[in-house]
Amino acid sequence: MTLLEVEGLSVRFGRRRRRAIEDVSFAIEPSQRLGLIGESGSGKTVTALALMGLLPQNAAVGGEIRVNAVSVRDLDEHSYSRLRGDAMSMVFQEPMTALDPTMRVGRQVAEALLLHSRHQAGSSRKSVMAMLERVGLDEVGRIADSYPHQLSGGQRQRVCIAMALINSPDLVICDEPTTALDVTVQAKVLQVLNEVLGAEGAACLFISHDLAVVSQVCDQVIVMLDGRIVEAGTVAGVFSHPEHPYTKGLVATARLDQMPPGERLPTVPDFYRGQL
């Protein structure tokens, strides 16, 4: 059974009904990893928030979203919040703002667990510690008793991943999870994410502007431009033979490693001069 089906999804904001995304359709099978790429403002995050039911009040949503064949568009807030953090969860870009600065991180991970299960507060600590270990953190006792500001950026993002995975979700949405990290920390966090997603068999919608990062996590990819999907396919296919001029531009700019030092780099407008 298809895990997530999105059909003709559109989101408009405000009284002027400004279009954020239009006619977005895609599907994710169980344990599939789908990358969603595009530049800032292309509608990637709006798509993620629409799936999670986290759009603000002034958003008008159209189209269909089904999780395990059940439409989530008809859910009331109470049923939706039972789904969030349980069947589907999310890892945000900036772990410092995603975590509550006034709560020890162990308790924050436990909260995600307790809200969705019959765990007693006492036995939850053990599960929390086990989960923190699985995301590659050392000295989990000390980490669990720390506040977010006492941890490094990489540690904070691992805590967020632990929180997203502790209820063994079917789908994890990662919105630029490593953009705020430096390259060595990014490499470690991606490795951890790959490991835990694999071990849990969870599917993933991975949002990023960085094609290289997407290629290390995903097997399928969709490309968004001005709120619409302009290309979709396997990572290998789309990245080696992009068809849409915009995708060609994105791929070319991401190939810094193949450019002789000092030479002018290709840019997206070299390939695509639409509404950029």
């Binding site: 800032s40 430096d182 390259v183 000092g262 002018r264 780099l265 290709p266």
Partner: peptide
């Protein structure tokens, strides 16, 4: 964004060349 990055790098390279600047470029990348 990675795609915007290329434009800014090109610009910096041009300016350094044209204006004869000395450049100190800090990066983790």
């Amino acid at each position: 964004d990675v795609s915007v990055r290329a434009q800014v790098i090109n610009l910096l390279a041009d300016l350094v060349e044209r204006e004869g600047l000395t450049l100190l470029f800090v990066s983790h990348d």
